[in-house]
Design a protein around this nucleic acid. Structure first.
Length: 228
DNA sequence: GGTGGGATTAGCT
DNA sequence: GCTAATCCCACCA
């Protein structure tokens, strides 16, 4: 079992790329948390990109502080913060060291340990277990205690998956933020029922490459730097 | 089915 | 002191 998993762990190089590339390529991958009572896992179906110092919605926008120093450290590290005093949000640090950026994981399709997830969440509806950033951390049993954990080793990992089911990506504006809220930086798997806030008023963009090019200069993303 | 308010904590714009 | 990358429930329709 463990050797099987070792071969699937996304290496640090996966994360050491432009944030938007990492965000797009995280769709369809798996978040994996091994806990004493069993294994909890889910497929990533929704993410948002936060572009570091250039992005007013990113915690790194105002520079290095005690909390945000992690942004300039190694990629592939978990950045977890408390949202609204109650919920935890899970991010992965991206870009090379000394460049800030992260991807917020917003929704998972449960694939293993659903009974544990139900217990952690206190609900039994499969579609409500991890269809939001606060819900998925609760379902996985993740808290700020895991802030700074390395996602390339240990019991909390992100794994590659076969791409036979390569996602059809939908691009929209981000959710729940008050700055830079119109940028095309939320990505999800089209038609997937586990995506959060299906009824939210978001702006839809035609396709990823076009939307990104229209809003950012070409330094923001090099579409050739995809990784599967 | 849609909306509005409250919960609760860390960081500081 | 104020704000926030959320969620849930009560209430209205």
């Amino acid at each position: 079992m463990s050797t099987n998993i070792d071969g699937k762990i996304l290496p640090r190089a996966f994360y050491a790329r432009p944030t938007i590339s990492v965000a797009l390529d995280l769709l369809g991958k798996s978040v994996y948390h091994s806990v004493p009572r069993g294994l909890i896992a889910g497929k990533i179906v929704e993410v948002e990109a936060y572009l570091g110092e250039r992005d007013p919605a990113c915690h790194a926008f105002y520079g290095k502080t005690n909390r945000t120093g992690i942004f300039w450290g190694d990629p592939g590290i978990a950045y977890i913060f408390i949202s609204y005093g109650i919920h935890y949000c899970l991010n992965t640090i991206t870009e090379e060291s000394n460049t800030a950026g992260c991807v917020l994981i917003r929704a998972l399709e449960p694939t293993a340990g659903t009974s544990l997830m139900e217990k952690n969440r206190g609900v039994a509806d499969l579609y409500s277990l991890a269809d939001g950033p606060g819900k998925l951390t609760q379902a996985l049993g993740i808290t700020v205690a895991q802030n700074g954990v390395d996602l390339t080793k240990g019991n909390f990992l992100i794994l590659s998956e076969d791409c036979s089911d390569c996602p059809d990506i939908v691009v929209t504006s981000r959710i729940g933020i008050s700055k830079a809220e119109k940028e095309p930086l939320r990505f999800y798997i089209g038609g997937n029922r586990f995506v959060s806030r299906q009824n939210s008023a978001v702006e839809f963009f035609r396709d990823t490459a076009t939307a990104i090019k229209e809003v950012f200069d070409d330094e923001a993303i090099d579409m050739s730097l995809r990784y599967h």
